[in-house]
Nucleic acid binder design. Sequence first.
DNA 1: CGAGTGATTGACTGCGTTCAACCGACGTGG
DNA 2: CCACGTCGGTTGAACGCAGTCAATCACTCG
Lengths: 194, 194
Amino acid sequence: MDSNILLTWGAITKKIEKGEFLFHEGDDARYYYQIETGSVKLFNVNDEGKEFTQETFYSGECFGEAFLFINEKYPVSAISTHQSVIYKLSKDRFFQILNEYRNIERDFLCILAKRIYSKTITASEVINNSPEHRILAFLDHCRKIANASGCILIPYTRQEIANHTGLRVETVIRTLSVLSAKKKLSIKDRKLYY
Amino acid sequence: MDSNILLTWGAITKKIEKGEFLFHEGDDARYYYQIETGSVKLFNVNDEGKEFTQETFYSGECFGEAFLFINEKYPVSAISTHQSVIYKLSKDRFFQILNEYRNIERDFLCILAKRIYSKTITASEVINNSPEHRILAFLDHCRKIANASGCILIPYTRQEIANHTGLRVETVIRTLSVLSAKKKLSIKDRKLYY
DNA sequence: CGAGTGATTGACTGCGTTCAACCGACGTGG
DNA sequence: CCACGTCGGTTGAACGCAGTCAATCACTCG
């Protein structure tokens, strides 16, 4: 939402270094967060220490807002993936804004609906399919976010692709070279183009 | 939402046999659906014909509503899993209701938020983990839905458990007997208790 | 230069899948 | 009543692919 409104209603801005946590899995959801600049990822770590990245957010986007509406602990942790500036507003104030501005309330319906759509797609692509399929689905997702139709440089490391697709780094690397051989994408100087 | 409101605003009720589709993946989202009695599942089928069940809904719940808020095709299909009676209301009317009743609009924020929570949990449990872990997570989910704390009869076939967890039937069967041996659950007369 | 991070490769292993066969319960129709 | 078909559940054997482990390379930065 508009940052002026956030500030008017008492939001503070926090400068965050890369790798700082905004909240941890299991915490109570007490604040609304929105990114001024930078990026944040929501993720889980399983028993064996393997990470799964649920989603990454960039400038202008909010994150974790859904968990303000229900009476549950955060099911994910949030960490900044770049140096960032984050707006932070108390849950109470956030609901006051929703009460005050009806159009903002409606905007949040759309935001939540998009999240559901995105998670639905992710689940269907990731759970049942081959590594090739998973990785291509993720790359499609990247291109959609970049709002590009042509060939783009994928701004993720192999490890990050692995974390998004539930695969291992080595599997990602081997699958990428297969896909490269099949001309589904290109690798130049270790950079990925899709 | 309250069925009287639905009917007042022009919803129709449809009697649906088990196995009938409400909508198909790729369709435009044009109606709001709510279950009077019965149950409906949302699912995908991948290239090899393997199904993944995204979620199952029961009496009183709505489904697919999130996709009314965004400009995308349905990413899942909906099929009734029992004989059911379904309320069906046009998208236009649905939005008129939201405009008219502010508390209903807020209710939908909570409904969508719950969906996100549930999908987030599912993703973290299913993607990274062992069959045992996946199945136990699904059984926990069942118990939560049943709103029970004690031992319950799991009302799903092995195949349905497989569809929810992204495993194969045989793997489910073998894992269940391991879990039974570990006293994590019990199997009596082929019925599952957890 | 040395440390650190990400990318890559090879060899091996194990687990979930695949395929095929069979069982047990139930319902239906002659 | 029995024969038969169907459906869910079960078991065994073999396979193959992603995971695992370990070593090495490439590049950047202090």
